[in-house]
Every structure is written in C-alpha cells, then in structure tokens.
Amino acid sequence: MAKYLLKRIFYLLLTLFIVITVTFFLMKLLPGTPLQNQQKLSPSEQHLILKQYGLTKPIWQQYLTYVGGVLHGNFGTSFQFSDQPVSYLISSRIGPSLLLGTQAMILGVVPGILVGALGAIKKNTWVDTTTTIVSILGISIPSFVLAVLLQYFIGLKLHLLPIADWGGFAYTVLPTIALAASPFADTARFTRTEMVDVLNSDYIELARAKGLSKWGVIYHHALRNSLIPVVTIIGPLAVNIMTGSMVIENIFSIPGIGEQFVKSILTNDYPTIMAVTIVYSVMLMVVLLITDIVYGIIDPRIRISGKSN
C-alpha cells in the first residue's frame, strides 16, 4: 500500500509539473499585460512597468523564475491587486470555496444515494417515477439557471434566504443547493441503475433464501455492492462542482477562488490564473487519489498491491 501511494504521489507531482508548464506557455500566448492604462502610457513608461513585473526578460528565463518561485510556494504578484502576493489572494479566498464545495458534495451524494436506492427498491412504482423525474430535472437544469430561479423565488419573492453575499450559514444555503443539484441527480441515477442490477443478482436471492430480513439484505448486500461504481463518479462530480463554483460564486457574490478565477481571466491576470489552475489541479488529483484509496477499502479485490509483481 505504501509503495502504491508513493508511486501515485510521484505521478501526481509529474502531472502537476506538466500542468504548470503547459499553462505557463499557453498564458504567454494570450495578449494580457499588467498595463491598466496602456493607451495613455508612452513606450518608455510601459517598459518601466513591465520591467517591474519581470516581463521584459526572455520567456525561458521567466519560466525558470516562475517554476523556482512555485517550488518555494511563491506564486508571484497579482496584476490586478498591486503588491498583493497571489498566495495570499488564494489562501484568503479558498475558505468559502472549500466550504461550499464540501457542503455541496455532501448534500449531493448522501441524499443522491438514498433517493437512488429508494427508486431501485420501489422499482416501477410512483416512488421510482418521481425520483427519476427529479434526477432528470437535476441533470438537465444547468446550475446557473437553478441559481437564478432560487434567487428569484426563495430570495426575492419569499424573503426566506439572502439573495447573495457572504456572511454566515444562511448565505451558503442557496449556492449549496444550486451546486449540489447535478451531483445529486448523477448519484441518484447511478445508484438506482446499479442497485437494480444488484437486486436481481444471485447472491441477493441467496441472502433472501437464507431468511435475512428485507432491509438487512438491502443494507448489507445490495447497497454496499452498488456503492462501488458510485465511488467511481465522485472524481468527475468533484470536477463538476469545481467548475460549477466559478459560475455560482459569481452569481451569489461569494468571495471564493472560482469567482476570482473568472475575474483573472477577464483581466488577463496570469499569475493568478496560473496559481488557481495549480490549486484546482491539486484538488482534483487529491480527490482522485482518495477515490482510489476508498475503492480499495470498499472492495478488497480492487486493492492494488506489489505482490503480483
């Protein structure tokens, strides 16, 4: 297991290095500058400002400086926020994003599994039809549309929850729901399909034949076995939530990194774009790593070990 982990972490770092390199050179192809007032600056004034940001050096030198900085945890200085280190920008903004992401993940996956299981158990009844309709709606309504609908009806018309802004649990409810809708629907659909399969399999028949209670069979045999494929989709779901958060944070005026990412792209603030890309990559790779480990725990057959080598 330790050897496996080390190998995975090595690959993770390698991937990260490639991501940094590719993003760096892609960014250099974009026409962004820290000049806010380009039209009114003389060439010598422009040169002076670019020099302050180290942008007059050859690109390979800028690349080495950048990679060197990243190794020391220095992501450079933001173009939009003067004198503000990008590492501070991200560390002060990552809290709301992580909180929302975690809440959305829990709110999406746990009820998703329950609803999916319920649909499978009550297959071809009105319960099944209702849960299927709900999950299809969850998949087909984009999060930003749901966000606006929630803002309009629950925030503006019913005054139940704040429309936007940040400052306490009440402010997280609507964005969490908007973000959680699609993971919820995905999980519910997946769980239902898997569970229907599992419930028809021989070992379930056997368990029933042995006289186990209905719920005992469902909990011990059906649900556990259905969860393996569900774990597989947690990785993609996390990506879903991360990309969704860019839009959702903007709509709900949440001071997170998703919102910052959008702003950085619009203002060509590439030190920030680079750093946020790295943070997103790390988060995604860590989620995938955890998924793989969880896999092994749920199903011993999948556990990869060095023994066969």
Binding site: V148, Q151, L156
Partner: peptide
C-alpha cells in the same frame, strides 16, 4: 460597499432593498 459581479444578482439585490 459590496462587490456584485453578476448583473442579475445586482438587480435582485436592488429590488429587495439590500
């Protein structure tokens, strides 16, 4: 002062008197 980057949200906040 509050930063609102989404026009639709801004309108809702204005209409609700926030």
């Amino acid at each position: 002062v509050q930063v609102i980057k989404d026009q639709g949200t801004w309108l809702s906040q204005y209409q609700s008197g926030k």
